[in-house]
């Protein structure tokens, strides 16, 4: 569980996060949405500990981040997995070496135990025949699967994903969304996804936090987002004709 209490972040004159509070529960896919420049990336980086908020607190399973020593912070990061927008795979390592990397760095497993664990998670993300290929030799969708495998190999408590669907075709994007959702439920992870993808919002958004100009403008689930009258949310989520029709159909069905 991650609890965010009234965090503020300023860069020079630019007040990016303006008092955001929310709660991300384990076993749920939590989505952060909002327009470009709304503060999503700064918010996610604050959750990752890459930015220190100027005010407010972030609590990881009731542990206050700002009160931790540097060593405890590094240890906390070992409980986190991150799927980057561009996958951020180590390009000099093969797929299996990438997945084994967190284990090599932090576990006391033997080489064979690490290989078994890597095989298991690669199988879990449906990648079976790419173990010895380099990241440059596999497709974008496969790279995302490897990134997910690397993020979960060390059994993290918290999983963060930055635009996990960017650059993927719609079919692969849905597969990646479902995979993240399944893993979240299966391993009871607190997952936070930063996304622009409205398909993701509709498919897996069990909790959605909508940011606007650094404020939390709305929060709720993918079911509630159909019903909301919040103008900022409806202008953003239903900006395309397709989603306008989807919402209309949903509301007509309910009536």
């Amino acid at each position: 569980m991650i609890e965010v209490r009234n965090i503020h972040k300023t860069f020079g004159e630019n007040h990016v996060l303006k008092g955001i509070s929310t709660l991300f529960e384990p076993g749920k896919t939590n989505l952060i949405i909002g327009q470009s420049g709304s503060g999503k990336t700064v918010f996610l980086k604050s959750l990752l500990g890459l930015h220190q908020p100027d005010e407010g607190e972030i609590l990881y399973s009731n542990r206050v981040y700002s009160e931790m020593s540097e060593d405890l912070k590094r240890n906390l990061r070992q409980e986190m997995g991150m799927v980057f927008q561009g996958s951020a795979l180590f390009d000099s390592m093969t797929v299996v070496e990438n997945v084994m990397f967190p284990l090599k760095m932090f576990s006391s497993m033997s080489e064979s135990e690490m290989k078994d664990r890597a095989d298991l998670v690669l199988k879990r993300v449906n990648l079976k025949d790419a173990h010895h290929r380099l990241p440059a030799e596999i497709s974008g969708g496969m790279q995302k699967r490897v990134a997910i495998a690397r993020a979960i190999v060390n059994k993290p408590k918290y999983l963060f994903c930055d635009e996990p669907n960017s650059g993927l075709d719609p079919k692969t994007a849905i597969v990646i969304d479902n995979l993240i959702h399944e893993i979240t439920v299966e391993y009871d992870i607190t997952t936070v996804i930063n996304t622009h993808d409205m398909n993701s919002v509709m498919e897996i958004g069990e909790k959605i936090v909508f940011l606007k100009d650094g404020h939390k403008a709305w929060e709720g689930s993918n079911k509630e987002i159909f019903k909301t009258d919040n103008e900022a949310v409806t202008n953003f989520v239903y900006s395309s004709e397709l989603f306008k029709k989807v919402r209309q159909m949903y509301l007509e069905e309910r009536n």
């Binding site: 890459l50 240890n75 986190m80 991150m82 951020a88 990397f101 963060f160």
Partner: peptide, 18 residues
């Protein structure tokens, strides 16, 4: 620099690697 641009350094930091 390429590791920085492709977020590989961020990936190391997030994992808790110095």
């Amino acid at each position: 620099g390429t590791m920085r641009v492709t977020e590989q350094i961020d990936a190391l930091e997030v994992m808790g690697v110095n």
